[in-house]
């Protein structure tokens, strides 16, 4: 590799007046990484993305792309390309002209830029729609065109702002696979902003969880899921029970919990608040007397062996090693 990181953020801060949207975050994204910025709305993830793109000025700190400081460069000279949340396809131009737009701006002759644009349209399987206007396309098709339009600039980093949020769930899973395939084949880094942890886990090599303008944890999805750094992360990525342990809070994966007669191991007892059938598993939610909430994800046949209903008293237990000690 001729560079250490595709993107490096050094104490990047964004202030709007007196409010701090992004608070001195630092992040290193190794070459060819699918990075997901994940967090609740208002956590600063979109501001971060827009600062990397150059659509938002950086209050303090530096952004480096492939080891080059691009903090003061205009968007087009950063080597980034952005895919907007609403796709922002130009409504007056055909798909072909949308994709060829950046080449036209650089003064590339018509025949050449159209040929090139056609290549990129076929890359996203949209060659047959070249003559259509954006308004004549479905959401998924618009997204493919937007992707082609971003990729034709041959970006070093592709930035995606909640790219899947406007799609229906079925299409979302399909586009997810496609994004991952493209990233792998192109060998560049993608930075993908999302508020869906499932989406982030499915896609990311590097999952960055943000909250209140800070990065709370960054790592491989598996690492984040298995060893969440804080109660916030454990709750936000879901599938965990956050409970008081002997020394501070612990996180216990709900799928490791079982219901049954109290044994010797760690456990909590409470009343069943809800039973949800979720297909392969059944989710049983408990509320303890001190108001703690906990849930167990039980394989359906385990649940059927000793079914419980709302209002029943039940004990939730887990193996000794399944608890993860949370910091703070």
């Amino acid at each position: 590799m001729d560079h250490r990181y595709d993107v490096e953020l050094v104490k990047v801060t964004k202030r709007y007046g007196t409010t701090v949207a992004v608070d001195a975050i630092s992040l290193r994204i190794p070459p060819s990484t699918y990075c997901c910025l994940l967090g609740p709305s208002g956590c600063g993830k979109t501001s971060t993305l827009r600062m990397i793109a150059g659509h938002e000025t950086i209050s303090e700190g530096d952004v480096l792309i492939r080891d080059v400081n691009v903090t003061d460069l205009p968007p087009a000279r950063r080597g980034t390309a952005m895919m907007f949340q609403s796709y922002a396809l130009f409504p007056h131009l055909t798909c072909l002209d949308n994709v060829a737009f950046s080449l036209k701006m650089r003064g590339v002759a018509k025949a050449e830029r159209h040929a090139k644009a056609r290549e990129y349209l076929s890359l996203v399987h949209m060659a047959d729609f070249a003559a259509r206007l954006p308004a004549q396309l479905s959401g998924g098709q618009q997204q493919r065109v937007a992707l082609a339009r971003a990729l034709i600039t041959r970006p070093r980093v592709l930035l995606l702002d909640e790219p899947l949020s406007a799609l229906d769930p079925f299409l979302r899973v399909k586009m997810r696979e496609e994004l991952k395939r493209l990233q792998r084949e192109l060998g560049i880094s993608f930075i993908h902003v999302t508020h869906g942890q499932e989406e982030a886990m499915a896609l990311a090599d590097l999952m960055v969880v943000m909250e209140a303008g800070h990065i709370r944890q960054a790592g491989a999805p598996r690492e984040v899921f298995e060893t969440p750094a804080s109660a916030f992360i454990a709750r936000f990525i879901g599938g965990h029970n956050v409970l008081p342990g002997q020394s501070g809070m612990i996180a216990v994966r709900a799928d490791r919990c079982r219901l049954g007669p109290p044994g010797d191991g760690p456990r909590v007892t409470g009343r069943v608040a809800a039973v949800e059938y979720q297909g392969p598993v059944v989710r049983v939610a408990l509320t303890t007397e001190d108001g703690l909430e906990a849930a167990a994800l039980l394989p359906d046949h385990d649940f059927d062996r000793a079914p419980v209903g709302p209002g029943d008293v039940a004990t939730l237990s887990w193996p000794e090693g399944a608890a993860h000690q949370l910091a703070g």
Binding site: D2, H3, V68, N69, G79, L123, L182
Partner: peptide
């Protein structure tokens, strides 16, 4: 079609010579 040909990685392009201190 080989996708990598479409997006050949940029050599350290336009901004390479920029010193980090330039603000």
């Amino acid at each position: 079609m080989n996708v990598r040909q479409l997006v050949s990685p940029w050599s350290a392009g336009a901004g390479a010579a920029m010193p980090i201190e330039r603000r």
